[in-house]
Design a protein around this nucleic acid. Structure first.
Lengths: 210, 210
DNA sequence: TAGATTGTTAATCGATTAACAATC
DNA sequence: TAGATTGTTAATCGATTAACAATC
């Protein structure tokens, strides 16, 4: 079904899913591209184009069934599968990810954390055990891990990524504020918090430019 | 100098700044668009176009002086100014932001946190005092706040944003996983962690599509 | 049926890439 | 000077928007 889908479209998918979830929760059962566009600040054309990258989920003269479309987009995003996560780094970022409430709802289960600090190792964060970093390879040889969250200091991020790859992990959610080198068959998605804050700073500095 | 600058360009600026900082730290003093492009996975053309939105910072036959270009981009991003932050919500996300090491380096100073939990109120996170949420308006009437970080639960995010606006705050860094309504003269930059993780999930699900 | 709204093709717009004269 | 590389204009490519026939 889905041939080539551009990055621009993919980046909008979570937004669709989020708004459809909110609409469903608000009891809305049907919506047109017109109304959804107004809500999401997108043109109706764009919404129809985006959705039709994946299939004709609407009905002429009617629009889209909210829960049905949400279901389709959820599947497209892979949210119907269970993803097993590990978190490298039990600092403040690692903790925030471990405690983030909505992830488990959406099929992301954190099965272990790793850290170098002796006072953290052996304890638990909620239900999640914290292992010493040197146990990583051993752990990976015993468990299938779908996603590793990289929340260690920047200076060891590349080394940790290499160890993850060697251990068979092929998807990384990176919070270290640096661009990591990785083989083509490893998927890396960055959360560069500083970048985001700097963009806010840019907009403040250029508030009246245009 | 800078006329209209597209979003696409603005989103790349922090990346330039980051790479230039790394290059400077590595002792590299000069770089061509060719070399920088190779490092950042961008075309030399794009780099020259991006930079020339703001001015001719290079020299023909030579390239760019790393520290000079970094300085220019830092200014363009507004990193030469001090930004005073407050953080709404002293949960795991709020704590992670409060403790994020690089922000203070770049001129972002957190002066207060706010929370509803009685056991948190009155304590400090590092040096930062935690005030009760109902003190927000009072605080805002006494301090000039450049940026508010919204790290409260989703269900009160809109209400908190409205209170911030009423209190005079005009820039918000939003971590609540929802799109907030805000007046045109308020700048809101979102960090939608779920969206980012869902994009990773999409890429895993469509790994072999093309 | 008439009205509404999709799915899809065509037109437009903007961003990226290529090319090259200017010049360090 | 010759070689390198910018700044900038022109060409290309891709994404967004508009239009409209299909159809619920």
């Amino acid at each position: 079904m889905a041939g080539y889908v551009s990055d621009a479209v993919i980046r909008r998918l979570p937004g669709y899913y989020r708004h459809l979830r909110e609409l469903e929760a608000a009891g809305v059962t049907q919506i047109s591209s017109q109304e959804l566009g107004k809500r999401m600040q997108l043109t109706p054309s764009q919404i129809r184009q985006d959705i039709n990258c994946f299939g004709g989920f609407g009905r002429q003269g009617y629009g889209y069934k909210v829960s049905e479309l949400k279901g389709h987009i959820g599947e497209i995003l892979g949210l119907d599968r269970l993803h097993r996560l590990i978190i490298l780094g039990a600092g403040s970022i690692g903790s925030a990810v471990a405690r983030y409430p909505t992830f488990s709802r959406e099929g992301f289960e954190t099965i272990a954390m790793f850290d170098v600090a002796p006072d953290k190792v052996g304890t638990r964060m909620g239900n999640i055990p914290i292992y010493p970093m040197e146990e990583l390879e051993n752990f990976l040889s015993g468990y299938k891990v779908d996603i590793a969250v990289l929340a260690t200091p920047t200076h060891c991020a590349q080394e940790n990524l290499d160890r993850l790859y060697a251990g068979g992990v092929r998807a990384v959610w990176n919070f270290a504020p640096t661009d990591l080198n990785h083989p083509a068959d490893m998927i890396v998605v960055n959360v560069h918090l500083s970048d985001s804050l700097q963009i806010l700073s840019y907009r403040i500095a250029h508030r009246d430019d245009g």
